[in-house]
């Protein structure tokens, strides 16, 4: 069953078109990676799907329902959450308050208590530092909090924008093993990553974004092949 379907999506800022014509779809429980050079519009794509940027045209369907043009606060309630680039946690609020914000985006309020316990299993920082100001956490802890906060909204589809940014290698490994567990629990993942090798290991497909279009799609096996990946990334296509 298709959980997320994007068709002919065009988006950008003011008169500038950043994304020209994006089409792809995902099945429930899949994980896709999006790679592409800096500034091609990966963040723009995720923000558009999550409703923070209004698309100029095209369609975005979540579980068969059209969500393009809707408010971000409604989209998160219908089951799609974004962990934004740079984490964007609220530094002035405590860890627990950050999580409580996530609860506002939860359709089912009754189970919120279990939800907090559930994400706390994945991310122990939530219980160990619950009263601490979030701004005082380390980078890795902040990333954990940002993901936990999004998970608390009970998403069926989770978008992550460069989760590894600014983190040390061992922390990144830990992060991705957590993401793997989230995926195994049935959440659909769409991950933007500069470091392609991080996602190739467990993504079902890698989309390569360039010049406002998805220039190439690699399946799991091809993506593991560094040469094929590089060729696709730099646009050295079939005629090379």
């Amino acid at each position: 069953m298709q959980i997320l379907e994007i068709e002919d999506l065009n988006s950008g800022y003011g008169k500038v078109d950043v994304l020209l014509d994006i089409t792809f779809s995902m099945k429930a429980g899949q994980c896709f990676g999006i790679v592409g050079p800096n500034g091609v519009g990966k963040s723009t794509l995720l923000q558009t799907i999550a409703g923070a940027i209004k698309p100029k045209s095209g369609s975005i369907k979540l579980l068969g329902n059209e969500i393009s043009g809707r408010n971000p606060e409604d989209i998160v309630r219908s089951g799609l959450a974004l962990v934004p680039e740079g984490r964007q946690i609220f530094g002035g609020l405590t860890v627990m308050e950050n999580l409580q914000l996530g609860l506002t985006g939860r359709a089912d309020k009754k189970t919120s208590h279990q939800a907090i316990e559930h994400v706390a299993e994945l991310f122990p920082v939530i219980t160990t530092h619950s009263k601490q100001q979030a701004g005082l956490l380390s980078g890795g802890q902040q990333q954990q909090l940002a993901i936990a906060r999004a998970l608390i909204t009970d998403p069926k589809v989770l978008l992550l924008d460069e989760p590894s940014l600014g983190l040390a290698p061992n922390i990144i490994n830990n992060l991705f093993s957590n993401l793997k567990r989230i995926l195994e629990a049935g959440t659909t993942l769409l991950i933007v990553e500069q470091r392609a090798n991080l996602v190739t290991k467990f993504a079902d497909e890698i989309l390569i974004l360039r010049e406002g279009l998805i220039q190439d799609r690699l399946n799991k096996i091809d993506a593991q092949d560094e040469n094929k990946l590089k060729k696709a990334y730099f646009g050295l296509g079939a005629n090379e």
Binding site: G51, P72, V76, A81, L82, P84, G102, T153
Partner: peptide
Amino acid sequence: ADFRTARLLGV
């Protein structure tokens, strides 16, 4: 502090 991110969380 950040309206945009708050909305993404459902505010």
